[in-house]
Design a binder for these strands. Structure first.
Length: 121
DNA sequence: ATTCTTACA
DNA sequence: TGTAAGTA
């Protein structure tokens, strides 16, 4: 499929999809006209990439664990590289801190909503 | 009409 | 990310 359709189906702007391709996160064939031709599987792949990106994982890291991404949310290394494990551990800690922050704000918003609904409804 | 590349702020 | 130019 072309970039426009992929953009619609993934919610990621065409510009970002080109960006992902530049960084080797996704691959595309080229039509005779020069247009990118993405495999069907790219839709799910972009979904995984966005999940990682939203979680705060830098493209640099995603690039390394991408070939190990399979089913939704599964990562595994047949041959663990000590350097990479250190990076992943650091990444895990950042994600933990971020998750705590997100939960805190979620609770704040939830509490506000409860108050308002009690006032309005 | 859609996409492509490049580049600056 | 918004934007613009000049193509195919």
């Amino acid at each position: 499929m072309r970039i426009g359709e992929l953009a619609e189906r993934t919610g990621a702007p065409a510009r970002m999809l080109r960006y992902y391709e530049q960084h080797g996160l996704i691959a595309a064939d080229r039509s005779p006209n020069g247009y990118r031709d993405f495999p069907e599987a790219t839709v799910e792949r972009v979904g995984q990439i966005r999940g990682l990106l939203d979680a705060g994982v830098p493209v640099k890291i995603i690039k390394q664990i991408l070939p190990c991404l399979d089913g939704p949310g599964q990562i595994y290394f047949p041959v663990p590289d000590p350097e990479m494990l250190a990076q992943l551990a650091e990444q895990r800690d950042r994600m933990t801190r971020k998750a705590e922050c997100v939960l805190k704000n979620r609770d704040a918003i939830a509490a506000y909503l409860d108050r308002v609904s009690g006032t309005t409804a």
